[in-house]
Amino acid sequence: MWEASDYNSQGWLRLPPLFWVVLVLQARTWVLLVLAGASRQQGETLLALFYPDRTAFWLGLLAGIPAALAFLLSGRRHRFVRLWRGWRWVLIVAQLALSLWQLWMLAQGEAETVTALALLIVDLLAFWWLLVSHRLRACFEQVGTFT
Rank of each mutant, 00 (worst) to 15 (best):
F140I: 01
A118V: 06
S133N: 12
W20F: 15
L33M: 07
S99L: 01
R40V: 15
V143W: 08
A118Q: 01
A36P: 12
R54F: 11
E110L: 09
L83N: 01
V93H: 11
A4M: 02
S99M: 00
L49T: 07
E112L: 02
G43F: 06
A138P: 01
L35K: 13
L35T: 09
L62V: 12
T55P: 00
V24C: 07
P52Y: 04
P66N: 12
A111V: 06
A48F: 00
G37S: 03
F140R: 07
A63I: 11
V24T: 02
A97Y: 13
V24K: 00
F50W: 02
L69G: 14
G109H: 01
E3K: 08
F57S: 01
L83W: 02
F127N: 02
L35C: 14
L47N: 02
Q142S: 06
L72I: 08
L117C: 09
E110P: 03
S99F: 05
V24R: 03
F140P: 05
T145S: 15
G144D: 11
A48H: 00
L15K: 08
Y7V: 03
E141A: 14
V93C: 13
L103C: 15
F80V: 08
L131K: 04
Q108P: 06
Y51K: 05
L49D: 10
W58M: 10
L15V: 06
S39D: 15
Q102K: 04
L46A: 09
M1L: 08
F146D: 00
G75K: 13
L35V: 03
G60N: 05
L15F: 13
W128K: 02
W129T: 03
N8M: 08
